[in-house]
Simulated assay, not measured.
Amino acid sequence: MRRRIVAARRAMPEHDRVTAGSAIRDALAEVPLLTTGGTVAVYYSVGTEPDTRKLIAALWKRGTYVLLPVFLSDGELDWAAYEGPDSLEATRQGLLEPVGQRYGSGAVRRAAAVVCPALAVDRGGLRLGRGAGCYDRALSLVGPNTLTLAVIYDTELVWSVPAEPHDRPVDGVVTPETGMRLLSAR
């Protein structure tokens, strides 16, 4: 399933990915929980992932405190503030990560929302990631009132994904065509 989705993403025209990023930004720019100046943890998209860079810039410009992940060697996620495009640097893994002060893996406990990557999400909110489990560990730390969303392309909302006991569901998905859609009641 992972290989098939990655191949489909690679085959997607660049124009469609750019348009999708704008649609994702516009859909989430209307969600009060993300735009009222609180803290939002968001992944910084790379490659063929659904584009979150426009969303991050829009939230930051509105005064939302945006946390971005910093991938640690043990597979955990640390978090640091996004302070504009100059606050990022490329890593060996091809990711862009913030260079400022790190707040620890528990920083997501204070987030109003966590926007995470996925390759697919099923109707119950279980997400298929890249297989490292880092976002499942991060999602296990969120507070009871934290909105958790996965960003996917519309074709990646599926009936079921392979699941492990440690997998954590998200509350909903954001797709370019349908916007935000809640899936589970945590």
Rank of each mutant, 00 (worst) to 15 (best):
L128P: 03
A118P: 07
G133D: 09
R137D: 01
L126I: 10
G131Y: 08
D136C: 06
A111Q: 03
L119G: 11
L126V: 14
L119E: 14
L126G: 01
G133I: 03
R109A: 15
A113W: 10
V115F: 04
R130W: 12
V115E: 02
R110C: 04
Y135S: 01
V108N: 08
V115L: 10
A120I: 10
D122C: 09
L119N: 12
R123Y: 00
P117S: 13
A120E: 06
A132I: 00
Y135L: 01
R109N: 03
R109I: 08
A112G: 14
G124R: 15
G131A: 04
R127E: 09
V115D: 00
V115G: 07
A113V: 11
R130T: 04
A112M: 02
G125P: 06
R130G: 09
A111I: 12
L126R: 12
R110T: 13
A111M: 09
R110Q: 14
A120H: 03
G129T: 11
Y135P: 05
V121H: 05
G129C: 12
D122G: 07
R109W: 10
A120D: 03
G131F: 07
R109Q: 15
V121L: 05
G124H: 14
G133F: 06
D136M: 05
R127H: 10
G124D: 14
R109T: 15
A120M: 07
A118K: 03
G133H: 01
Y135D: 03
L126P: 00
R110A: 15
A112I: 01
A132Q: 06
G133S: 03
V121E: 07
D136Q: 09
R137H: 11
G125I: 13
C116H: 00
G124K: 15
L128V: 03
R123C: 01
V108R: 02
G131R: 07
P117H: 01
R109P: 00
G125F: 09
G129Y: 08
L126F: 15
G131C: 10
Y135A: 01
R137V: 09
Y135H: 02
G125Q: 08
G124Q: 14
V114R: 03
R109C: 12
R137W: 01
G133Y: 04
L119T: 11
R130L: 12
G133V: 05
G129P: 11
